[in-house]
Computed example of a mutant assay.
Amino acid sequence: MDHKYSNARGHFFAAVRALAASSDSIQARLIDANESILNVTLDEFEGDRELKIKFARILDLLAVDDDDIVSTVVETAAHMTDFEAVKVADLICDFCFELI
């Protein structure tokens, strides 16, 4: 069994579940999904430049670099339009699929 990216895969699967399994607004679901995503680090994709860049893009869309990234993500996601939030949710789902 391939254990490459198993930590990231588990966290992104939980993020996709949070996005899919709720009747809350897309912004609220994105905030819930990020509780899992923020447990993943760029270092986990060392050696795979493409995945590292895609993950960095997701992080970049969620929050600017700040001392308290969790509160920044919550604030950013809460003020996204539905279109922006769906775009980020799509990127999260696509990234999860690439980890499988």
Rank of each mutant, 00 (worst) to 15 (best):
D2R: 10
D2G: 11
H3F: 15
H3L: 14
K4G: 13
S6Q: 14
N7P: 04
G10T: 11
G10C: 06
H11W: 06
H11G: 07
F13G: 12
F13I: 14
A14E: 12
A14I: 10
A14W: 05
A15M: 03
V16L: 05
R17G: 10
R17K: 14
A18N: 08
L19E: 01
A20V: 09
A20D: 15
A21D: 15
S22V: 05
S22R: 04
S23L: 10
S23R: 12
D24S: 13
S25N: 05
S25L: 06
I26G: 06
Q27D: 09
A28R: 05
R29F: 02
L30K: 00
L30P: 00
I31K: 03
A33K: 02
A33G: 04
A33T: 06
N34V: 07
N34R: 05
S36C: 03
N39L: 15
V40K: 03
V40M: 08
T41C: 07
T41Y: 05
L42R: 06
L42S: 10
L42I: 08
D43R: 11
D43Y: 06
E44T: 04
F45V: 05
F45C: 04
E46Y: 08
G47H: 04
G47D: 06
D48H: 05
D48T: 02
R49L: 13
R49P: 07
E50S: 13
L51M: 12
F55V: 01
A56T: 14
R57K: 15
R57Y: 14
L59V: 07
L59F: 06
D60C: 11
D60H: 13
D60V: 07
L61C: 11
L61E: 13
A63H: 06
V64I: 10
D65I: 10
D66N: 09
D67S: 15
V70I: 15
V73H: 00
H79D: 15
H79G: 14
T81N: 04
T81I: 09
E84I: 00
A85Q: 04
A85L: 03
V86N: 09
V86L: 14
V86Q: 09
K87A: 14
V88K: 01
A89L: 02
A89N: 03
D90V: 13
D90R: 13
L91P: 05
L91G: 08
L91F: 13
C96K: 15
C96I: 02
F97E: 12
F97S: 12
F97G: 10
L99I: 07
